[in-house]
């Protein structure tokens, strides 16, 4: 609906970290800016705003997605989980704990995206989704280092924490498998 100032708004309902929100959004706003500027959820980061770095990765209906490439108005009915929603209360998720243990970050700016991405990635692997390392038909992927690196390559880390990120994901994946 045009509110008379040339800006078009629309009403949507999204569930963010478990809580349903009824929102009136400027139709130009990205999901990332909605989270950061309007809902105060600044965990999702803006590294490029162009789908090139992964810092803004959230889970959108259970799958990892770049929030900077998703228009908020198109998310009516969607379920969004951000880094703020990964821990169970005070209990960190196994990935969050592994990132701490392995020192899988330095500045921490890519970290929320890495964590959401890894969370979605473990789920994709568990469902047998293929990758460049495990092409379709090759059976369920085994999360060795090559597989983790491939599947985590949508998330850039300029601090160069990859070696530790892979170690953390490997540790958390191992824990999940037990």
């Amino acid at each position: 609906m045009d509110s008379g100032d040339g800006v078009v708004h629309a009403e949507i309902t999204v569930t963010v970290n478990g809580a349903a929100r009824r929102l009136r959004v400027d139709t130009r706003v990205s999901l990332l800016d909605l989270l950061r500027e309007e809902l105060g959820l600044t965990g999702a980061k803006k590294g490029c705003d162009h789908g090139q770095c992964g810092a803004c990765t959230v889970l959108l209906d259970g799958r990892r997605a770049n929030a900077c490439l998703a228009l908020a108005v198109a998310q009516d009915g969607a379920e969004v989980v951000t880094v703020e929603g990964l821990a169970g209360g005070d209990r960190l998720s196994p990935l969050q704990q592994a990132f701490l243990d392995e020192d899988a970050f330095q500045c921490g700016y890519c970290t929320p995206g890495q964590l959401c991405s890894a969370t979605g990635m473990l789920d994709e692997a568990a469902r047998g989704r293929p990758s460049a390392v495990t092409p379709p038909g090759d059976g369920p992927p085994e999360l060795d280092d090559a597989e983790i690196r491939e599947r985590m390559s949508g998330n850039l880390c300029r601090c160069g924490a990859y070696v530790n990120i892979v170690a953390a994901v490997r540790a958390a994946a191992g824990e999940a498998a037990r």
């Binding site: 600044t42 965990g43 880094v83 701490l100 970050f105």
Partner: peptide, 21 residues
Amino acid sequence: MRVEGREKVTGTARYAYEYPV
């Protein structure tokens, strides 16, 4: 462990653009 590590993995560490004003 990094002193501010927990804030960084839970998304509560605030960077410059993220202060509510």
